[in-house]
């Protein structure tokens, strides 16, 4: 029963025109980046990972995801979360599901699963396209790390897979909080606006060093630390901090969404 519900949820998400457009947009990012670096003259493309992109196609997926995590991926996660509960309420389909009946906790689980599955799919898709585009435009001679060492292609793929999981988890954490918002309203746009505003405000707040007491509470603080995947050997402390931070958001988001759903009149 639950597997067919989960399957139905993912199929439903994949059938949305909006989802397809979003995925198409996401896939363009690594292609544009690879092409851009390929055509650009001179040295590497700038600070951080961008500097080691040249001739290092395997880094494209990491760079793409790292870049997209700041805005694009939270946006996509918020859209899925918004459609998941607020959108269903708007179309009147939430009532149908509840009367079927699907228990409210199960419904939240189904929605969370859909969000996770689609996030993983989107991130993996970006990574795969990134590997292909990066290899095509920039070449593939193993993966050069920020530490100046060169990993074999197999090691590089492992790093990419690890990064895909980390990024997906961050995305799901954002999505879980968006789901909590989604459970309170019938307007998907409100959910997206609230989520994106928070992400942007968090990032702005992160710039003020006078607010450094606040920074450890902001999920966006954890984003840059994920770049450590590109160091060799990988230092795990920042990565685990970021992941724990996202985990806290996931717990809070899911808990609030559950409370709201269980007490909600539909």
């Amino acid at each position: 029963m639950i597997t067919r519900q989960l399957g139905s949820e993912v199929r439903w998400m994949l059938r949305r025109p909006r989802t397809l457009i979003g995925l198409f947009g996401l896939v363009l990012v690594p292609i544009v980046i690879s092409f851009g670096i390929w055509t650009a003259d001179g040295d590497g493309g700038g600070p951080g990972i961008a500097a080691i992109l040249r001739g290092n196609g395997m880094v494209v997926p990491i760079f793409t995801l790292f870049l997209s995590l700041n805005l694009l991926l939270p946006l996509v996660a918020s859209i899925w979360a918004a459609d998941g509960l607020a959108g269903e309420a708007q179309h009147g389909t939430l009532r149908g599901l509840l009367v079927a009946p699907v228990s409210r906790v199960r419904l939240l689980f189904v929605k969370l699963f859909g969000l996770t599955a689609m996030s993983l799919f989107a991130v993996t898709l970006m990574a795969v396209v990134g590997i292909i585009a990066g290899t095509a435009f920039l070449g593939n001679d193993g993966m050069m790390t920020l530490s100046g060492t060169t990993l074999t292609t197999a090691e590089g793929l492992l790093r990419i897979a690890f990064f895909v999981v980390l990024v997906t988890f961050q995305m799901v954490a954002v999505g879980a909080v968006a789901l909590a918002v989604s459970a309170t309203t019938e307007h998907p746009l409100v959910v997206q606006a609230a989520t994106m505003t928070s992400i942007i405000v968090f990032q702005v707040l992160g710039q003020f060093s006078s607010l450094d007491w606040l920074h450890p509470f902001l999920i966006t603080t954890g984003f840059p630390g994920l770049v450590d995947v590109m160091r060799d050997p990988i230092p795990f402390d920042q990565i685990s901090d970021s992941t724990l931070l996202a985990g806290c958001y996931l717990l809070i988001g899911t808990g609030l969404a559950a409370i709201r759903l269980v007490t909600k009149d539909s």
Partner: peptide
Amino acid sequence: LPHVGALVEGPGFHPFLSGRENLVRCAAF
């Protein structure tokens, strides 16, 4: 509720799915 069929406050369906697909989604639940 499994034994109850309901049409409440107007029909609620997804506009981008066909009638059949909408029903299949309902049926899955």
